[in-house]
């Protein structure tokens, strides 16, 4: 059984149809990459999976459980299972690094601070930020902030991690430190859905890659299939463009 499944999922912003029948599945422990031009709906899929945008039709299943988006309790459950890391990190500016990581587990989930804090410290140590626990987000570089964001997502103990262009806002020399963190997660068997423009990274880390355009999955296959031997005209066109530069 797939860990995460989207079955003919459509979604719209107002009257603008962004997703037009997405079929996609991610196996347990698998990393799937989403690539495609801007506006193709990649990030929208992640918004649907965190309940920020309910689908207009179709079905989302997590470990076989159908998510009923009309019920607040099921959206909460979905968010407990899927954590997202945003392109712009979205760290809480008023809280320190440690507080950013611990606030949701303690204040929202009601776990004991004494129990959460060592976990948070361990996660921050793992992303190499042990010396920044008391720092505020605006005192950190983009790469450091993004690693805090990853630690914050992991402290929620999600089953599935959604990464939305997590390196897009970073200076080139900071990209590798974030990618190293994600590599480590993949190696540990975290189920991940990754939207990225880092084609080299997507190719390296993904078991499968979905190429999206105009709200549809145009082609789905192994990284080698998609990047070296695309079957569809639209995919060839995209891959040709990104490999040319």
């Amino acid at each position: 059984m797939a860990h995460l499944e989207l079955d003919d999922v459509s979604a719209a912003y107002g009257t603008f149809q962004v997703l037009k029948g997405i079929d996609l599945s991610v196996a347990r422990g698998e990393t799937v990459g989403l690539v495609g031009p801007s506006g193709s709906g990649k990030s929208t899929i992640l918004r649907v999976l965190t309940g920020l945008l309910p689908p207009s039709s179709g079905e989302v299943r997590v470990a076989g459980d159908v998510v009923d988006y009309s019920r607040a309790s099921e959206i909460r459950r979905l968010r407990d299972r899927c954590a997202i890391v945003f392109q712009q990190y979205n760290l809480f500016q008023n809280l320190t690094v440690l507080e950013n990581v611990t606030i949701a587990p303690t204040k929202i989930r009601g776990r004991k601070r004494a129990e959460v804090q060592p976990e948070a410290e361990a996660l921050l140590a793992r992303v190499g930020l042990s010396d920044k626990l008391g720092a505020y987000p605006d005192e950190l570089s983009g790469g450091q902030q993004q690693r805090v964001a990853i630690a914050r997502a992991l402290c929620l103990k999600p089953e599935i991690l959604l990464l939305d262009e997590v390196t897009a806002a970073l200076d080139p020399e900071l990209v590798s430190e974030v990618l190293d963190t994600i590599r480590g997660l993949a190696a540990e068997g975290m189920t991940m859905l990754i939207v990225s423009h880092e084609m080299g990274f997507i190719r390296e880390i993904s078991a499968r890659v979905a190429f999206m355009a105009e709200g549809r999955v145009v082609e789905l296959g192994s990284p080698a299939d998609i990047f070296d031997n695309p079957q569809k005209e639209r995919t060839r066109d995209f891959v040709g463009k990104i490999l040319r530069h």
Binding site: L52, R79, D80, F86, Q88, N90, Q93, K107, I108, L156
Partner: peptide, 23 residues
């Protein structure tokens, strides 16, 4: 983006305002 992050982590409207937005 502060609202989105809080919402994605299951903060309620009042929790978001209290812990994140008002400060």
């Amino acid at each position: 983006n502060q609202w989105h992050a809080a919402e994605a982590m299951n903060f309620s409207l009042l929790q978001t305002i209290r812990y994140v937005i008002l400060p």
